[in-house]
Nucleic acid binder design. Structure first.
Lengths: 220, 220
DNA sequence: GGTGGTCTGTGACTTAGTCACGTTCCCGTG
DNA sequence: CACGGGAACGTGACTAAGTCACAGACCACC
């Protein structure tokens, strides 16, 4: 397989040539269309996954049908859930779904363990991703337990807007981002619309007063 | 240092003699009295920590002063927070406090990195603990986001009681266990008392009807 | 021009968190 | 022994968030 993908991962690009070759010879590139389930509870992973482009949403689903996004994996990162399954035979109650078309590199279990054993750079990559996910999860706990929903909603709207000014998203999707319920998000959005800070239409939200939203998002 | 502590860690006990010796020569045993702060935000760790006995509570404190327990580290486990600081220079917004007197083994950073590089068993230990903490954190998210507080309270009461029937704990401590507020916990407890399932007194709670509590804790 | 599915709106209600107190109990010190 | 301060707990009034059971509204596709 071509080895240019390895440049996306600084820790791997810095490996000695024989380690790089070891990986590229055993890895296979995979293309996952939007909406693909990458992993799910009860389905043991059989490959280590490096994401090249696109994003994978990792979320938890409650018995009652409510959902919450735990974090997103994007280009240059690895998928801890599958990693843990490989390293510790741990089975998580979360599932991963591609939010966009995703290009990834799959490393078979045996090659993964060999790389872990042989390559300090590869280990650093894996440990760094573990740490990042723990950070992400702690942040989710903090938000869910302590922050007001209107503040978190403003944060999400701004994050999803990027540098643009309109967000294409449903109330339901925002609710799962926040771990809340659709009706609640709908009501909060309508309050924001009443204040003239957003304009609502089916499937998309226009940010009319980003500065006000920013103030709300950052306020104590 | 004496190396009998290593028996508490199956992955380490299984190491070849030279690896065991490498560790025991460089590790130092430390005794931490109840209430010691093991790590805190902004204080970089300089040693890898293996807990021999006792428990360390890892918790998050909100700006508004509310707290939530993320997980507890007990005998035979390692402290991921300090590990991450060593491996990834990550700084977390959590702090660790000993809940009991704690005996631990501290491995200096250099010896830790050497052990990671050399010993597959040591790596397994570290990875397994990472996975366990991710599991713990995901469980906290699930609970906080989706479960009713009375159910979670019943779970905590039963867990703290162990096989006994009285729990020595304040409403405030229960609230930080659950990431809730003291008044709320107090009200729920009084409702349980009204039903005759618990008896309340200052600083301790008597479980009068554990079966009922169990039903509440396990109910949908 | 129906028709089924997705998306959104609404009201009534319950649960949880906040705020500002007041009360009770314990324990050491004068 | 009184008493004073701190810790633990109680309370009421209020706000925020979640739940349930609907009812429209919009879209795409036959």
């Amino acid at each position: 397989m071509s080895d240019n993908w390895i440049e996306r991962f600084p820790e791997l690009a810095a490996l000695p040539p024989q380690d790089r070759q070891y990986l590229t010879e055993r890895a296979t590139k995979v293309a996952l269309p939007t909406g693909t389930t990458v992993f799910a509870p009860g389905v043991p992973a059989e490959s280590f996954l490096l994401i090249l482009s696109g994003t994978v949403r990792v979320q938890q689903v409650s018995p009652g049908g409510r959902e919450i996004v735990l974090y997103r994996v994007t280009g240059g990162e690895t998928c801890i859930m599958t990693t843990s399954c490989l390293l510790a035979d741990e089975n998580y109650a979360a599932d991963g779904v591609t939010e966009t078309d995703v290009e990834a590199v799959a490393v078979p279990k045996a090659a993964f363990e060999e790389a872990i054993a042989q390559s300090p750079g590869f280990r650093r990559l894996v440990f760094a991703d573990y740490s990042r996910r723990i950070s992400d999860l702690m942040h989710v706990v903090e938000e869910v337990a302590f922050e007001r929903l209107d503040k978190r909603l403003a944060q999400r709207l701004l994050a999803r807007a990027g540098d643009g000014t309109t967000v294409r998203v449903t109330h339901h999707d925002l609710a799962t981002d926040l771990g809340s319920a659709r009706e609640v998000v709908g009501r909060l959005l309508k309050e924001l619309e009443r204040r003239g800070w957003v304009a609502l239409s089916r499937g998309s939200i226009e940010l009319c007063a980003p500065e006000q939203l920013k103030a709300l998002a950052e306020g104590s």
